[in-house]
């Protein structure tokens, strides 16, 4: 097939679309669905700017972080996908988003969406993740502004909030 009709559940909304077989998820999200909260940078699974969460029964938290440039949209049929634009609930920021603001972890902001999605997945896997684990799990998300210091601090802070609750 050159095209495939698929159903995606993006940020809780059902979305029935026909996608080109050779289009990656990031291409479809940005170019077909106008979801510009997902950034497109290297297109080769190196920088993590397009990181989204995709459901995975076996993953802790039921979802995993994926580079949207590294999967074919056509193979995502039936999947639940969360992007950074879908993290807020009733206008309230996700704790990781809030921690990024509080800790000054945002500079140019281009990596931020992907970085936040990765951070959410790290804490869903292990809310008590320590510095070393956070740092090695953040690999695959490149930031050129912050030196990662405040990003790591933000993940630690968000983790401490979730373990307190």
């Amino acid at each position: 097939m050159k095209k495939r009709s698929i159903t995606l559940f993006i940020n809780g909304e059902e979305c029935n679309i026909t996608v080109q077989a050779h289009h990656t998820l990031v291409h479809v999200l940005r170019n077909q669905l106008n979801m510009t909260d997902v950034k497109h940078c290297c297109g080769r699974g190196e920088c993590g700017a397009c990181t989204v969460l995709v459901d995975d029964d076996k993953a802790p938290g039921g979802r995993k972080a994926v580079d949207a440039c590294m999967v074919l949209a056509a193979m995502m049929d039936g999947k639940r996908i969360t992007t950074v634009g879908g993290l807020e609930e009733d206008g309230k920021l996700h704790p990781v988003q809030q921690a990024f603001i509080d800790e000054g972890a945002v500079q140019c902001g281009f990596c931020t969406g992907g970085m936040i999605m990765k951070s959410v997945s790290i804490l869903e896997k292990n809310p008590k993740a320590k510095e070393d684990e956070i740092r090695s799990e953040l690999e695959g998300n490149i930031c050129r502004c912050t030196g990662y210091v405040k990003i790591v601090d933000a993940v630690k802070k968000a983790g401490s909030w979730s373990t307190k609750r």
Binding site: G85, I101, V106
Partner: peptide, 23 residues
């Protein structure tokens, strides 16, 4: 003072529109 950056919220929500995001 350690106030939040003015553009932080639009960047953590993905709503900041870079040139490539403009339609």
């Amino acid at each position: 003072h350690r106030i939040p950056k003015l553009d932080a919220r639009e960047k953590v929500t993905g709503r900041g529109m870079y040139a490539g995001d403009l339609r």
